[in-house]
């Protein structure tokens, strides 16, 4: 790791101010992605600004139509939250599958979304549930937030403060682990809105990161059941291919995981 300067601000405003002063500053939340990257000397922030203990960034609150999870809330706290388990059990379940128990104690929803790893779990939930990402400057809809591999709509120095999830009529998540990294080789989150619209998002599969899957959405809108997907085919064009899975295999997993997510959603 290159030498850096560590800061622990106590408010979002202070964090943003510190970011502005640093030559090449980075926000540090749980550090479960940033620190491994820094250890490999693939990132060299002049300053790391630890936002994990800022009180206004921690907590889970019910909102009128759903729940709001503040950005520095850990995966463990989401997975075990009674509020989340009651409102959107699929989201609590998804959080319980991220990394491993030690990682879940430190990793945060805001850190995961800001990083937008193409195989991370949270982006699938945010996109499928039609969540809203709140920052210190604005609100960004899920459809506008994700911009491809490791890329988001966030500006330099903009910090995620919370994510608002609407409660949908149905929601389910199914993940197939990469056998080595345990990230999602493919994970699919399905949701049906109270109005009957269907949103399906897949992570781990596409070369462009998390994606909606229109062919599955259409089939499920017509018939919300795993069997409705038996005859559809997900195209393997644009799918990732590596030693862990071919493009065709990942395309198959998108379908199979979607079926299992629908079954889980009920």
């Amino acid at each position: 790791m290159y030498e850096t300067t560590y800061h622990r601000p106590s408010s979002v405003d202070e964090a943003v101010a510190l970011f502005g002063k640093g030559k090449e500053a980075k926000f540090l939340a749980g550090g479960q992605t940033l620190l491994p990257v820094m250890k490999q000397r693939l990132a060299a922030p002049s300053d790391v600004i630890d936002v994990a203990r800022i009180k206004e960034l921690i907590g889970i609150e019910p909102t009128g139509d759903g729940i709001m999870i503040k950005a520095a809330t850990t995966h463990y706290d989401v997975a075990t939250s009674g509020t989340v388990q009651k409102a959107i059990p699929a989201l609590a379940y998804l959080a319980s599958l991220i990394g491993d128990p030690a990682v879940r104690y430190r990793g945060t929803i805001g850190g995961s979304l800001a990083n937008n790893d193409p195989a991370a779990d949270y982006p699938a939930a945010v996109l499928a549930l039609g969540a809203t990402v709140k920052t210190n400057k604005r609100s960004i809809s899920a459809d506008d937030f994700f911009k491809g591999l490791f890329s988001t709509a966030l500006d330099d120095g903009e910090i995620i403060t919370a994510v608002s999830f609407p409660v949908q009529a149905k929601a389910g998540y199914s993940k197939f682990n990469n056998p080595a990294s345990r990230f999602a080789l493919t994970g699919v989150f399905v949701a049906r809105t109270p109005a009957g619209d269907v949103r399906v998002a897949a992570t781990g599969a596409s070369q462009n990161g998390v994606m909606r899957v229109p062919v599955i959405e259409a089939a499920l809108k017509a018939n919300w059941s795993a069997g409705a997907l038996d005859s559809i085919k997900v195209s393997d064009s644009g799918m990732l291919a590596d030693i862990h899975g071919s493009a065709a295999y990942r395309a198959n997993l998108v379908k199979v995981m979607a079926q299992r997510a629908v079954t889980a959603a009920g």
């Binding site: 560590y6 540090l28 030690a102």
Partner: peptide, 29 residues
Amino acid sequence: CDTSQCGACVVHIDGRAVKSCTVLAGQAA
């Protein structure tokens, strides 16, 4: 390991088991 996976470095911080190879000393202050 270098990738926060093996768990040989697990300690408890404030009662929770975490990977001490993926925590800055400053974070544990």
